[in-house]
Design a protein around this nucleic acid. Structure first.
Lengths: 222, 222
DNA sequence: TGAGAGATCAAACAGTTGTTTGATTTATTT
DNA sequence: AAATAAATCAAACAACTGTTTGATCTCTCA
């Protein structure tokens, strides 16, 4: 990391601040105003220096396209983020569908933590662009029936919406009485077993289980 | 929500798509090209209609400043997000300081999940703008010593950096042999007890414990 | 002191973009 | 069918912005 002149440091700082304040990079003249350079050309030269020094990049010939290199730009992380609706509570509550209609709280999580999402389904909705299509959804857990896998009362679980599951998957399921619950899924001869992860709880046996999703993540707040 | 003409729907869709693809809103002429309107004025008129209908807003007289009203803009969620460095692994690894120097993986998490962060410390760095000051940090857990509080091998814990703790807090601590570990913190008469949450593990007693942070969140991936 | 390099300046140029103008086309109403 | 309204068009205008030009200033070094 080379030494920069104080003027160049001031320019970098002005760019950072402008991006932070307005969400976009400044123009050459805005930089000039910020660092007290009267001519846009002076700024231009300094910017070229900073580019040669590898501290800046202009992504194209468009306006306001200066990026600062080597610092974590907001962009890079934001892009890899998915917005997930928090649909309600499970185990002892209402079915999830009822909760979908309202205006759910939203949280954004980095894709690096989340399971792969089917690219086609994402693409398909690119035009219509309801971009938090409920592919992933969050639920607040009530009860301690899954304590042995580390899911406790009050934890947040993020599930991927799917209607089938494999043995051993932790699923969000809807049982006969329209109650949503988080359990381990096992298909038996003529029925489904929803197995708690807590010896104090008994499994639920049912032929009429609707899988809402597979738990991908659980988040515990201390 | 009023009815819109098909042309107006097409324009809204084109704007959404352009914002999604490029991160900024389209120009009048780009919209025209997308919806097959030859004159920029035609687009202008349609945009004015959409503004009157309350579906669009132009935040200023600047270029590329169209916003779509009533849909969850990326912005609103992004703003409430903190970028957190993943510093390494705990329990049986190197001390955290050694890992800070390198180029850590980063994840962004919504502030709604995170503990309150001291506003002053945030403000102070506004000018200098090293904006992921290590206020919060993430660690990957190795070992099962905290299984009874739901922290398992491979889980991600997010901790808030602090150098003291209260009894019962789950902390990231550095013990004598420079080993970072996650344990429950108890101050005893003349020593610190670092208590695992697993009967198969014994507590660590030490007079020389350095607290690195308090665990605020744990994230489990299934 | 003086020559040269670098920084800065005012000014102008060119491309992009929002906006306006006036004519033409299309749709709707009478 | 005639008239009115709405939509669309090509063209031009003006503001913004990146870039270039040529002159002026400042500093360093011989």
């Amino acid at each position: 990391m080379q030494n920069l002149t104080t003027k160049q440091e001031a320019i970098l700082s002005a760019i950072r601040q402008h991006i932070r304040n307005t969400g976009q990079s400044p123009t050459v003249r805005e930089i000039g105003q910020a660092v007290n350079l009267k001519s846009s050309c002076s700024v231009q030269k300094q910017i070229e220096s900073l580019e040669r020094a590898g501290r800046l990049r202009r992504s194209s010939f468009k306006y306001r396209s200066i990026e600062i290199i080597g610092e974590h730009s907001q962009q890079s992380h934001i892009i890899d983020t998915l917005v997930i609706p928090l649909l309600g509570r499970v185990a002892g509550g209402n079915p999830i569908e009822a909760l979908q209609e309202s205006d759910p709280e939203l949280i954004s999580l980095p894709t690096s933590l989340l399971p792969r999402v089917d690219q086609n389904r994402q693409k398909k909705s690119c035009d219509e662009q309801n971009f938090s299509k409920v592919e992933l959804f969050g639920l607040r857990v009530v009860g301690r029936s899954m304590i042995d896998v580390g899911i406790d009362d009050g934890d947040l679980v993020i599930a991927r919406q799917q209607s089938s599951a494999q043995n051993g998957d932790i699923v969000v399921a809807l049982v006969e009485d329209n109650e949503a619950t988080v359990k381990k899924y096992y298909r038996e001869a003529d029925r489904i077993r929803l197995q708690p992860a807590n010896d104090a709880f008994l499994p639920i046996y049912s032929r009429d289980v609707r899988i809402l999703g597979k738990v991908a993540l659980s988040i515990k707040q201390f």
